[in-house]
Design a protein around this nucleic acid. Structure first.
Lengths: 149, 149
DNA sequence: ATTTAACATTTGTATATACAACTTTTTAAT
DNA sequence: ATTAAAAAGTTGTATATACAAATGTTAAAT
């Protein structure tokens, strides 16, 4: 299915426009599947993303700027996002003693357990989304997208 | 630049995961550029998207479900999105006489003028985003993304 | 003819996001 | 030592989005 068919455009799009639209539309498809997967766990994609970053720290606390810099969606309000995770007992926050402007955020065991539960489902979800693609094609797609950055 | 570098992942991602992340991250990059372009005109990407759909109707009024079905982001509240466009005098809404459940939305001359002004900038924006890509590469990328749908 | 169901949109509510202004703490400059 | 500037977060406000319930209208069923 082409992007023109998706948006029911009667006239063909210019190549560059078609591509940017296609990237955005594809992203929506992916996000929808991932959101659906996370819905039963009552966390948003952003919150999941932060939990993954915290786990990636392997015990080292992360401060807000670190989280922000590693997120896929650089969002403007990481404070309140982390608030939600703390409310749900998936993370904890303390003030950094060496620099009291900073906060230190760590994932809790509870948060780690949640991620462990989601891990295999997320892997499968990603595979399902891309089930029509060969490894070769995934590679090509990745290389092309990398050129954007 | 690879997606692993972007998110500062110490371990390599699985091919499928890398690809879905890459699609989402690429979309953010595109959206950021387009939002920046629209900012001076004080309309959001969604609002712009609706205006484009209305113009595409070439005079035929669109009802809400038509708009919703053609949007890139299927958003849940098209009513209030259209409200914003009406507030700004870029669109008008009337009740459909043959079926009073429906509304008929048309773009105003004011809205058409706005789009005409933005058109060349948007074309250039899309070209700039993808300036590193050959037409051949754009084609390949489009074909691959089309497989998602 | 009356009730039921389906349709198209609107409204309410909760949450998310963007952007700017504001604290608090630390570093640098005089 | 005092003031100014920078850094790191937080809070306020406006807008956006998601989801469910409500409204009004039309079509279908009995």
């Amino acid at each position: 299915m082409t992007i023109e068919e998706v948006i029911k455009s009667s006239i063909p799009l210019k190549p560059h426009t078609r591509t940017t639209l296609n990237i955005m539309y594809s992203s929506r498809l992916v996000e929808e599947k991932i959101s659906d997967l996370l819905k039963p766990y009552n966390i948003s994609m952003q919150q999941y993303n932060v939990l993954r970053i915290l786990r990636g720290q392997k015990g080292t606390p992360a401060n807000l700027s670190t989280i922000q810099e590693r997120m896929i969606n650089k969002m403007s309000n990481t404070t309140r996002l982390v608030d939600k995770l703390i409310e749900k007992k998936f993370a904890e926050r303390t003030i950094c003693e060496s620099n009291r402007r900073k906060v230190e955020i760590v994932i809790t065991q509870n948060g780690l357990n949640l991620l462990s539960e989601i891990d295999p489902l997320m892997t499968k979800c990603n595979e399902d989304i891309l089930n029509l693609f060969s490894l070769q094609e995934l590679n090509t797609l990745n290389q092309l997208l990398d050129k954007l950055k």
